[in-house]
Design a protein around this nucleic acid. Structure first.
Length: 230
DNA sequence: CCGAAAATAT
DNA sequence: GATATTTTCG
Protein backbone atom coordinates (compact mmCIF):
# COMPACT_ATOMS: atom_id res chain seq x y z
CA UNK A 1 0.00 0.00 0.00
CA UNK A 2 2.25 2.72 -1.10
CA UNK A 3 0.11 5.77 -0.99
CA UNK A 4 2.08 8.58 -2.44
CA UNK A 5 -0.74 10.98 -2.28
CA UNK A 6 1.01 14.24 -1.84
CA UNK A 7 4.73 14.34 -1.58
CA UNK A 8 6.91 14.08 -4.59
CA UNK A 9 9.28 11.33 -4.08
CA UNK A 10 12.60 10.74 -5.59
CA UNK A 11 12.54 7.10 -6.49
CA UNK A 12 10.75 6.12 -3.37
CA UNK A 13 12.63 8.43 -1.06
CA UNK A 14 11.11 11.52 0.38
CA UNK A 15 12.41 14.72 -1.07
CA UNK A 16 14.03 16.98 1.41
CA UNK A 17 12.21 20.27 1.31
CA UNK A 18 14.49 23.22 0.95
CA UNK A 19 12.94 26.32 2.40
CA UNK A 20 13.97 28.90 -0.10
CA UNK A 21 13.56 32.57 0.51
CA UNK A 22 10.49 32.66 -1.61
CA UNK A 23 8.93 29.65 -0.02
CA UNK A 24 9.43 31.25 3.35
CA UNK A 25 7.78 34.42 2.13
CA UNK A 26 4.75 32.45 1.09
CA UNK A 27 4.82 30.85 4.49
CA UNK A 28 4.90 34.22 6.22
CA UNK A 29 2.09 35.54 4.09
CA UNK A 30 -0.03 32.57 5.01
CA UNK A 31 0.82 32.86 8.68
CA UNK A 32 -0.12 36.51 8.77
CA UNK A 33 -3.33 35.78 6.97
CA UNK A 34 -4.24 33.51 9.80
CA UNK A 35 -3.66 36.20 12.36
CA UNK A 36 -0.04 35.81 13.32
CA UNK A 37 2.42 33.27 14.47
CA UNK A 38 0.51 31.98 17.46
CA UNK A 39 -2.78 31.47 15.73
CA UNK A 40 -1.49 29.89 12.58
CA UNK A 41 -1.54 26.12 12.43
CA UNK A 42 0.11 23.79 9.97
CA UNK A 43 -2.96 22.57 8.16
CA UNK A 44 -4.34 25.98 7.41
CA UNK A 45 -0.97 27.35 6.51
CA UNK A 46 -0.48 24.54 4.08
CA UNK A 47 -3.84 25.18 2.51
CA UNK A 48 -3.05 28.84 2.05
CA UNK A 49 0.31 28.19 0.56
CA UNK A 50 -1.07 25.96 -2.16
CA UNK A 51 2.18 24.29 -2.87
CA UNK A 52 1.67 20.78 -4.14
CA UNK A 53 5.02 19.65 -2.94
CA UNK A 54 4.53 20.62 0.66
CA UNK A 55 3.13 18.26 3.23
CA UNK A 56 1.59 19.24 6.48
CA UNK A 57 4.61 17.87 8.26
CA UNK A 58 6.90 20.05 6.27
CA UNK A 59 4.98 23.11 7.26
CA UNK A 60 4.67 22.04 10.87
CA UNK A 61 8.37 21.55 11.07
CA UNK A 62 9.07 24.91 9.58
CA UNK A 63 6.57 26.54 11.85
CA UNK A 64 8.28 25.00 14.83
CA UNK A 65 11.62 26.24 13.73
CA UNK A 66 10.29 29.65 12.92
CA UNK A 67 8.74 30.05 16.33
CA UNK A 68 11.95 28.97 17.94
CA UNK A 69 13.79 31.48 15.90
CA UNK A 70 11.49 34.30 16.89
CA UNK A 71 11.90 33.45 20.51
CA UNK A 72 15.65 33.44 20.19
CA UNK A 73 15.89 36.78 18.47
CA UNK A 74 13.55 38.47 20.86
CA UNK A 75 15.28 37.27 23.99
CA UNK A 76 18.54 38.72 22.86
CA UNK A 77 16.73 41.94 22.28
CA UNK A 78 14.64 42.18 25.41
CA UNK A 79 16.77 42.18 28.56
CA UNK A 80 13.83 41.17 30.69
CA UNK A 81 13.58 43.84 33.30
CA UNK A 82 11.05 43.69 36.02
CA UNK A 83 7.58 43.96 34.57
CA UNK A 84 8.45 47.06 32.64
CA UNK A 85 8.46 45.24 29.39
CA UNK A 86 5.12 44.75 27.85
CA UNK A 87 5.40 43.37 24.47
CA UNK A 88 5.67 39.68 24.13
CA UNK A 89 8.82 38.10 22.97
CA UNK A 90 7.22 36.46 20.02
CA UNK A 91 5.40 39.54 18.88
CA UNK A 92 8.45 41.69 19.10
CA UNK A 93 10.40 39.40 16.90
CA UNK A 94 7.52 39.02 14.55
CA UNK A 95 7.59 42.73 14.00
CA UNK A 96 11.26 42.56 13.31
CA UNK A 97 10.79 39.77 10.90
CA UNK A 98 7.92 41.27 9.01
CA UNK A 99 8.56 44.94 9.09
CA UNK A 100 12.15 44.04 8.93
CA UNK A 101 14.43 46.58 10.26
CA UNK A 102 17.23 44.82 8.57
CA UNK A 103 19.22 42.81 11.10
CA UNK A 104 22.41 44.56 10.14
CA UNK A 105 21.01 47.97 10.77
CA UNK A 106 21.95 48.12 14.39
CA UNK A 107 18.71 47.82 16.22
CA UNK A 108 18.60 44.10 16.08
CA UNK A 109 21.97 43.85 14.53
CA UNK A 110 25.00 41.73 15.20
CA UNK A 111 25.45 43.24 18.62
CA UNK A 112 22.12 42.04 19.76
CA UNK A 113 22.71 38.44 18.90
CA UNK A 114 24.65 36.99 21.74
CA UNK A 115 27.60 35.39 20.03
CA UNK A 116 27.60 36.37 16.43
CA UNK A 117 26.03 33.11 15.43
CA UNK A 118 23.40 33.57 12.85
CA UNK A 119 20.52 31.53 11.74
CA UNK A 120 21.12 31.63 8.06
CA UNK A 121 17.58 31.10 6.97
CA UNK A 122 15.73 33.50 9.11
CA UNK A 123 18.28 36.20 9.45
CA UNK A 124 18.86 36.57 5.76
CA UNK A 125 15.20 36.65 5.10
CA UNK A 126 14.96 39.88 6.92
CA UNK A 127 17.26 41.71 4.60
CA UNK A 128 15.06 41.94 1.58
CA UNK A 129 12.29 44.18 2.68
CA UNK A 130 13.24 47.21 4.61
CA UNK A 131 11.22 50.02 5.95
CA UNK A 132 11.55 51.67 2.59
CA UNK A 133 9.44 48.95 1.15
CA UNK A 134 6.62 49.87 3.43
CA UNK A 135 5.89 53.11 1.67
CA UNK A 136 6.03 51.38 -1.64
CA UNK A 137 2.87 50.26 -3.30
CA UNK A 138 3.67 46.64 -3.20
CA UNK A 139 0.63 44.52 -2.82
CA UNK A 140 2.34 41.31 -1.90
CA UNK A 141 4.38 43.07 0.72
CA UNK A 142 1.31 44.70 2.09
CA UNK A 143 -0.25 41.33 2.25
CA UNK A 144 2.58 40.13 4.41
CA UNK A 145 2.08 42.86 6.90
CA UNK A 146 -1.64 42.69 7.13
CA UNK A 147 -1.69 40.47 10.17
CA UNK A 148 0.19 42.93 12.27
CA UNK A 149 -1.64 46.10 11.48
CA UNK A 150 -3.88 47.77 13.96
CA UNK A 151 -2.41 45.77 16.72
CA UNK A 152 -1.56 46.68 20.23
CA UNK A 153 2.08 46.23 19.49
CA UNK A 154 2.71 49.76 18.38
CA UNK A 155 2.08 51.22 21.74
CA UNK A 156 3.86 48.60 23.75
CA UNK A 157 7.01 49.03 21.74
CA UNK A 158 7.17 52.70 22.51
CA UNK A 159 6.38 52.27 26.15
CA UNK A 160 9.05 49.64 26.48
CA UNK A 161 11.65 52.08 25.30
CA UNK A 162 10.31 54.85 27.45
CA UNK A 163 10.33 52.70 30.55
CA UNK A 164 13.86 51.54 30.07
CA UNK A 165 15.09 55.01 29.45
CA UNK A 166 13.71 56.06 32.80
CA UNK A 167 15.25 53.09 34.50
CA UNK A 168 18.69 53.78 33.21
CA UNK A 169 18.45 57.44 33.90
CA UNK A 170 17.65 56.67 37.51
CA UNK A 171 20.67 54.46 37.81
CA UNK A 172 22.95 57.09 36.44
CA UNK A 173 21.78 59.99 38.52
CA UNK A 174 21.19 58.31 41.85
CA UNK A 175 24.69 58.55 43.30
CA UNK A 176 26.14 61.96 43.91
CA UNK A 177 29.81 61.10 44.24
CA UNK A 178 31.55 58.19 42.60
CA UNK A 179 34.90 56.61 41.97
CA UNK A 180 36.56 56.04 38.66
CA UNK A 181 35.07 52.63 38.14
CA UNK A 182 31.65 54.02 38.64
CA UNK A 183 32.49 56.72 36.21
CA UNK A 184 33.29 54.26 33.50
CA UNK A 185 30.11 52.47 34.36
CA UNK A 186 28.24 55.64 33.89
CA UNK A 187 29.91 56.12 30.59
CA UNK A 188 28.74 52.71 29.53
CA UNK A 189 25.26 53.43 30.69
CA UNK A 190 25.26 56.64 28.72
CA UNK A 191 26.22 54.57 25.78
CA UNK A 192 23.35 52.26 26.38
CA UNK A 193 21.02 55.18 26.70
CA UNK A 194 22.12 56.46 23.37
CA UNK A 195 21.58 53.08 21.83
CA UNK A 196 18.15 52.79 23.34
CA UNK A 197 17.25 56.24 22.16
CA UNK A 198 18.27 55.17 18.75
CA UNK A 199 16.16 52.06 18.94
CA UNK A 200 13.29 54.08 20.22
CA UNK A 201 13.55 56.43 17.33
CA UNK A 202 13.64 53.65 14.80
CA UNK A 203 10.72 51.89 16.36
CA UNK A 204 8.73 55.07 16.19
CA UNK A 205 9.47 55.26 12.54
CA UNK A 206 8.27 51.74 12.11
CA UNK A 207 5.08 52.56 13.91
CA UNK A 208 4.51 55.54 11.69
CA UNK A 209 5.19 53.53 8.60
CA UNK A 210 2.82 50.84 9.71
CA UNK A 211 0.10 53.34 10.44
CA UNK A 212 0.47 54.80 6.99
CA UNK A 213 0.45 51.38 5.56
CA UNK A 214 -2.65 50.51 7.45
CA UNK A 215 -4.42 53.41 5.84
CA UNK A 216 -3.31 52.31 2.43
CA UNK A 217 -4.46 48.81 3.13
CA UNK A 218 -7.80 50.06 4.26
CA UNK A 219 -8.30 51.92 1.05
CA UNK A 220 -7.21 48.97 -0.96
CA UNK A 221 -9.62 46.73 0.84
CA UNK A 222 -12.46 49.17 0.47
CA UNK A 223 -11.88 49.52 -3.22
CA UNK A 224 -11.76 45.83 -3.64
CA UNK A 225 -15.09 45.34 -1.94
CA UNK A 226 -16.88 48.18 -3.63
CA UNK A 227 -15.65 47.58 -7.13
CA UNK A 228 -15.75 43.90 -7.95
CA UNK A 229 -13.03 43.44 -10.45
CA UNK A 230 -13.36 41.99 -13.92
C1' DC B 1 -4.44 17.67 14.42
C1' DC B 2 -0.84 20.13 17.09
C1' DG B 3 3.44 21.08 19.13
C1' DA B 4 7.71 19.39 21.40
C1' DA B 5 11.39 16.50 21.33
C1' DA B 6 14.31 12.97 19.23
C1' DA B 7 16.40 11.31 15.08
C1' DT B 8 18.62 12.08 10.64
C1' DA B 9 20.58 14.31 6.96
C1' DT B 10 23.48 17.93 4.96
C1' DG C 1 30.19 20.28 15.05
C1' DA C 2 26.30 22.90 13.81
C1' DT C 3 21.99 23.41 11.21
C1' DA C 4 18.21 22.13 8.58
C1' DT C 5 14.62 18.94 7.93
C1' DT C 6 12.13 14.69 9.11
C1' DT C 7 10.06 11.49 12.14
C1' DT C 8 8.29 10.10 16.35
C1' DC C 9 5.58 10.71 20.38
C1' DG C 10 2.23 12.46 23.82
Amino acid sequence: MMKNTNEHEKNGKKERVAWSEELHRKFIVAVNHLGGIDKAAPKKIMALMKDEKLTKENVASHLQKYRLHLKKVSTTFVPNQEGSIQFHAINAAAVVQNVSIAPSDGVFGPNSTSNGKRDINFCEWGHGNRIMALTEENSSLMEEHRGYLGNEQHKSQSTFMANNLGLIRDLVTSSSSCNSQELTEIAELRHEMAAIRHENHQLREVVEAMKAQQDMLMQAILQRTIVPRR
